[in-house]
Amino acid sequence: MHRIGYFLTEGFQVMALGTQSVFEFANVVAKEQVYQVTNYSLTGGVITSSIGASVNTLKATSEAQADTWMVSGIVDPLARDSTAEELNFVKTAAGRAQRVGGMCTGAFVLAEAGLLEGKRVTTHWAYAGVLKQRFPNTLVEPDSIFINDGSIWTSAGLSAAMDLVLGMVEKDLGHEIANRVARVLVMYHRRSGGQSQHSEMLNIAPKSDRVQAALEHARANLSGDLSADALAKIVHLSERQFRRVFLSETGLSPAKAVEQLRLETARNMIQRGHHSLEIIARETGFRDRRHLREVFIRKLGVSPQSLRRDAREAPTGE
């Protein structure tokens, strides 16, 4: 039996408890108790959530054992820092566990405990920039629903933590069980880690007509030459001027913006499922299907085939 420990602090986000339903119904679908879920806190006893609902917990001592630890954050991770005692427990417990999940802003707790150094992680989009700034050695990827890097799992908002836990179930019990659990829970479909929290390109708001024109040209010509030099010529600037202005107005290099645009467009085409991966790769500016896969794995942590499979599997009820 796989032991799941939920580490909660005062003011925890109540939706974190909802993810326990995924483990519960994994037991139902598997027709055996695969998972045992226990709530812990430093003090033990009753812990109150951010909305005022309370839950009873066991005391988190050095003897508390779990194969997976799930760590919930609070609504505003900037409102309070974790205590030394909390961080010590999380760090020690993680060292003994098979994996650790940081749900939503729980990623801040894991980072403060020193568990995210050099790791690919995500968190709620509203705090992704702060997480990256505070912990520069952490590889924050705001454009993901959840990320699994080794023994560390992190999710975006808490609804995305449902997808993270389903990902854990899939890793433990296989795709078929995870998909059946998603149907039982009446989730539209099980979102893979490679899906976006929102369109990152919507955040690019250039001030000048020239940079806007360059972006519009890029969107309309994804399969063409979108080098900084080529885009600079479109808007009648030197390459050096263009790079400087583009970075100043968007916060991105031209190459990074083009990569995001190509990746986002390819992902949307894959999820719609109307074209082959070879055609999608060609139309969005990737060299070939292999290059498309390499970039997806590197940037999103998931293959194009997995995204397409999950998009096709909408639940029909059981």
Rank of each mutant, 00 (worst) to 15 (best):
H2E: 09
R3P: 03
Y6E: 03
L8Q: 01
F12A: 04
Q20R: 14
Q33V: 08
S41N: 11
V46T: 13
I47K: 11
S49M: 05
V55H: 04
N56G: 02
T57M: 13
L58M: 11
K59F: 02
A60Y: 06
A60H: 03
A64K: 06
A66Q: 06
A66P: 01
V71E: 01
T83N: 12
A94S: 12
G95R: 09
G95V: 12
R96I: 01
T105Y: 10
A107R: 00
A111P: 00
E112R: 15
R120C: 04
G129F: 04
Q133R: 12
R134A: 11
F135I: 07
L139D: 10
I147C: 07
D149T: 00
S151G: 05
I152E: 04
A156G: 14
A156V: 02
A156S: 15
L158E: 05
E170T: 08
K171F: 08
H175N: 09
E176P: 01
E176W: 09
I177A: 09
N179M: 08
L185C: 08
Y188S: 14
R190W: 06
H198C: 05
M201K: 06
N203C: 08
K207I: 03
N221T: 10
D225G: 07
D225C: 04
S227M: 09
L237V: 00
R240G: 02
F242S: 00
R243A: 12
A266I: 07
A266N: 06
N268Q: 15
G273P: 07
G273D: 10
G285N: 10
R287Y: 13
D288P: 02
R289T: 05
R293W: 04
G301M: 07
S306E: 14
D310K: 13
